[in-house]
């Protein structure tokens, strides 16, 4: 009985050891597959994030353009001149009243 009785676990392990390179390669294949899935998912996440940033950029660009218009219309020279002369009682000195300060 003892002679004929075979240890199955042993055989399996022996067989595995015998084919250890194949097993290793199989394991690598599996790992590789998981890595591909992982990276492509990461890639998609980044693409999505990138796209959202682009949209954000477009939104900010539009906002910038509108702010620019507002700034321009508020800082329009004739408006500034009008406010300075009418409301703040300022005036431009004549050339003869100007004093030149030379920076050495």
């Amino acid at each position: 009985m003892s002679k004929s009785q075979l240890n199955l676990t042993r055989i399996v392990l022996q067989d595995l050891w015998h084919n250890k390179w194949v097993m290793l390669l199989a394991l690598l294949v599996v790992l590789n597959a998981i890595a591909v899935v992982y990276t492509s998912h990461e890639g998609r996440k980044y693409t999505s994030q990138w796209d959202q940033l682009l949209q954000e950029r477009d939104r900010l660009d539009i906002e910038w353009r509108n702010l620019l218009l507002e700034e321009q219309s508020r800082s329009e020279h004739s408006r500034i001149t009008r406010i300075a002369t009418k409301e703040l009682n300022m005036n431009r000195p004549l050339p003869k009243n100007e004093i030149v300060v030379r920076v050495p």
Partner: peptide, 19 residues
């Protein structure tokens, strides 16, 4: 894309496109 800006020599806007 928006049409390019036109500015004066000091960067003041003369023409701005808004979507």
């Amino acid at each position: 894309v928006q049409r390019g800006l036109i500015t004066d020599r000091n960067g003041e806007m003369l023409a701005v496109s808004v979507p």
